[in-house]
Design a binder for these strands. Sequence first.
DNA 1: GTGAAAGCGCTAACAC
DNA 2: GTGTTAGCGCTTTCAC
Lengths: 329, 329
Amino acid sequence: MPNIDEIAKICKVSKTTVSRVLNNHPYVSEEKRKKILDVIKELDYSPNSLARHLRTNKTRTIAISIPSIDHPFFSQLTKGISNQAFDQGYKVLIYQTFYKKEIELETINLLKNKEIDGVILCSLENEWSTLEPYLAYGPILLCNEYHESAPIPIICYDEFKATYIAVKHLIQRGHTNIGFCFDTFYSQAQAERMKGFSLALKEENLLVHTEWIFDRAFDIKDGFNIFKKLDGMAEKPTAIFTGSDQVAAGIIKEAISRNYHVPKDLAVIGFDNQLICQVTTPTITSIGIPIFELGRKSVQKILENIQHDENIEREVIQLPFELIIREST
Amino acid sequence: MPNIDEIAKICKVSKTTVSRVLNNHPYVSEEKRKKILDVIKELDYSPNSLARHLRTNKTRTIAISIPSIDHPFFSQLTKGISNQAFDQGYKVLIYQTFYKKEIELETINLLKNKEIDGVILCSLENEWSTLEPYLAYGPILLCNEYHESAPIPIICYDEFKATYIAVKHLIQRGHTNIGFCFDTFYSQAQAERMKGFSLALKEENLLVHTEWIFDRAFDIKDGFNIFKKLDGMAEKPTAIFTGSDQVAAGIIKEAISRNYHVPKDLAVIGFDNQLICQVTTPTITSIGIPIFELGRKSVQKILENIQHDENIEREVIQLPFELIIREST
DNA sequence: GTGAAAGCGCTAACAC
DNA sequence: GTGTTAGCGCTTTCAC
């Protein structure tokens, strides 16, 4: 692979001039520009990005951290992010935390050693106070998560209200014994959901039964297990907020095979409005989230910051959601 | 952010010594090593990766190209790849081609401008002859695709045989009118499937009905549409090989709602054995593929090559698959 | 319009 | 065991 010196030598110009052509700077005579372009093509020369990045102190790369890519929600979010980044000429490094603090730290540390220009956190494993010092090294953005005080852009939707509305819907259907699933304790977004759930019940003077609350509810298999636990209880809920279409699908399938009628014996509401809602029997009532938009908006925001070198500031952008009623409630 | 010179200055040593400590080289006195480590910690110093990469001509980064991340197969494959890479201290850049040649080229071009140490192609959009020249710049590996002559490692499974067995299974169930779905014309892996399908039919003196062959079959919605087309035909197949669990789920759901009995009126076989096979009614017969393993093995292979700087050579590694019979056939 | 020279931050050959 | 020096390949200031 030739380098810029070689091109310069062959063209009998300085490497400055070659660099000017490479970067579309003005003030290069048409003649030389043409010659240089020709030689570049002939030698199949491509500038070394590493050297450029070192020199300019920019990498045109961002990193994202997600719990795990093989979850429909996060794979769609990643699609949105990756798409938008690509369109803007940015590369995306993907980090799966599997809910581990250290991997999140490793991701954010890329800022410090200059491997990326910014990072989008799609979940939050560490205390914000642990992460905040890294702001000195580059922009951090929260997507699909929430923190009440972090001085950074937060692209999310109102998890509190979405859950509130979902649970109200169950109550309107006549249910008073309602269960609740979530994934981890540490997420503030999940805490918001819990608040929405509690308020909806409280307003109707209904009680939160702690034994009907299930954590680590993530995929279809978790749905199977949750139903089994449920079915073994003396007193059972007649409706359940699952927080996930996959969990809903698992619960429904298991319920149906044990001859439950859904929604009569057990009403189930999903979350995210994935396509899977449309192929189960019965189909799944869910909350529709603009997932791609969440991703796109996040990239847009962080690139504004990177490109204009603005100070990152707190800004909470909530995207709309909607209740989509199907057969499972 | 301090740099290596600053650390050296404070410690009253040369930057070589600091570099030695940074890279765990021997021959540094315990005393100096300790001092240097202390100062590094105190100043919260982190070496600039870009400079290191430029100097060493290695990035510890690989890129993968996939058609689209929001497809369960590819998100699981990405998980396997990303996991293994992370464990080995490598970063992963993700490129979605959306079946476009140019994006695949852009991915592979990262080799040329030194941004990555190797690339794993999980689909193939360009002619191999277009891609082959890039081998001069670094290792390329094919995962989940096939090419009959490319001189590179190919990590795959026997798509021909898997399809053959799936179709034979349908025939054993008494079907003689069998449809076929696939995603794109250009994939050799898909061509292998078509061969397996054809052979299975041919061996039983059955005909391939071209009107029962559907391309662009990728997700649940495609399944809906394929069923609608099918249902509108004068002569209909009684069984269909879908090549995808999502497509199978879509076809089944649509069939059920039009009062078809699955598998009596229409038998449906999926592919990949995703969890979705277990939540539809009826559940979906499928071909199980070791997806994570496919990803892990690919990374293992390409890192062997990167780290030992071996010549890349043709090697076809086929992983096992299995037929998993459920209710839809 | 163009080029010389400095330098981004690091590693590694070599000398001592 | 340690330091000096060169240089990875580029961009950018400054002078002409």
